[in-house]
């Protein structure tokens, strides 16, 4: 076998080897860099300090994939309910005047416990647990 041919073959092997190695290492390195988006923690969600709710009594937060409405009543107690209307999946809002939850799509109404009281909604809103740990509001799924 000619030395030229052998040299060529060896360099081909070398290049191929380095190429294959980088084809393996590149994905591994990219994999190890954590993605920028915050980890989807669906079992619990930190909403923020209680003081955020000094002037407002409701807020819609994203709990994984599902929107959740966090309510504060006059006594300062918190309650979290699924914000997806049970009628046609619109997102509900808090009606301060009537102290009810209102779905603006078809005027469905729920009371503050999530029970459907008027309009088309067929079912009550699902409830989430609210815990206040170190003055910070946390929402957790009741299923867990």
């Amino acid at each position: 076998m000619g030395t030229n041919r052998r040299k060529f073959l060896n360099s081909l092997l070398g290049i191929g080897g380095i190429g294959a190695l980088s084809a393996i290492i590149y994905p591994i390195m990219s994999y190890l860099v954590p993605p920028k988006i915050a980890e989807v923690k669906v079992n619990s969600l930190k909403v923020g300090p209680v003081s955020d709710f000094a002037n407002i009594n409701s807020k819609i937060v994203k709990f994984g994939r599902t929107p959740v409405i966090l309510l504060k009543d006059n006594q300062g107690n918190f309650k979290a309910l699924s914000a997806t209307c049970t009628h046609l999946d619109c997102i509900v809002q808090f009606d301060n005047e009537q102290q009810q939850i209102l779905c603006a799509c078809h005027g469905g109404r729920y009371d503050l416990t999530g029970k459907n009281v008027s309009g088309p909604p067929p079912k009550p809103l699902k409830e989430f647990n609210v815990n206040i740990i170190d003055n910070e509001i946390r929402i957790t799924s009741q299923e867990a």
């Binding site: 073959l9 081909l12 080897g17 084809a23």
Partner: peptide, 23 residues
Amino acid sequence: IGYGISTLILILLAGALYLKIKG
């Protein structure tokens, strides 16, 4: 595309290796 490139590299390497073994 990534799959194509890496497969190409691997096939190239395999080919070179095959020739080497034959030698």
